[in-house]
Amino acid sequence: MSPMLCVLEQRDGTLRKVSHEIVAAGRKVADAMSTTVDALVFGHDDVEGLDALGACGADRVLVATHDTFRLYSPEGQTATIAGLAANYSTVLFAATATGKDLAPRVAARLETSCATEVTDITVAEGRVVVTRPVYAGRAIQQLRMMASTAVLSIRPNTFPVTDAGRPGTLESIPVPEFTANVEVVEVKAPAEAALDVGEAAIVVSGGRGLKEPENFSLIEDLADAFGQAAVGASRAVVDAGWRDHSAQVGQTGKTVSPGLYVAVGISGAIQHLAGMRTAKVIVAINRDKDAPIFKVADYGIVGDLFEVVPRLTAEVRKLRAEG
């Protein structure tokens, strides 16, 4: 069986966390197929963290270096991957902003479809079979990939990283000639580096129950108390202009699978529930004990969020201070 190619992501010269998950997913399939895993990294200079990729499951780490790879280069990266893809049974991306842009370009070069936002991968009769949510999480689809090279993107936070103990040998690879019609000119980082709701291990989301946009400070405080937590929002408050669309969880927003999801003052419209029901643990805080959110929550507190949330923030801070 041909090996797996995992296309990794870096930002500012550091591998992104999701890159480990791509390699872990590749390792899982490679073990089922008795084959090897190559990890492909794009950069314009040294990239930090490549030495950890063997542990995640990479047999080889391929490094493609080019001046334009300081930022995302759609055409350069497409050309590089497309030049290699025929040697692989599967090319894996992350279903991130970059992966969602890049994977279909590569699939088009291979004249096939990719499968995006994959949450599980198995192998049956020598073919890759993927599981992926459709209808914004209201149904689950299984697809058998028919092309000789399957192109997939995996959903962040769904493939656990375990110590695989592979060599992770570094190799440089050439970048083919390409024409750059599309140029990423700049990455504008927000004043405070905000964690993305789609990738964070903990998401604290607020809804209409907060009553005023200013009260989102309660949510921010709680997220801060957890550490490494992103602030999410329901569609209602995004539509009302309280929060940026990038924070929206659910239909027309993001589908998230964090380890912990805390829903504050969110009643739980079906579109919201579909977007967060794959979280590992769900906590709901709402004053209406009949709110639909409690039907999916593992733990609920019925009460006034303006009393409950500050107390929770304090307790979490206390716990973390105790270590």
Binding site: A236, S267, G268, A269, I270, Q271, L273, P292, K295, V296
Partner: peptide, 9 residues
């Protein structure tokens, strides 16, 4: 969450 009435619109 199976009720047809459980959405907001």
């Amino acid at each position: 969450m199976s009720s047809p009435a459980a959405n907001s619109r």
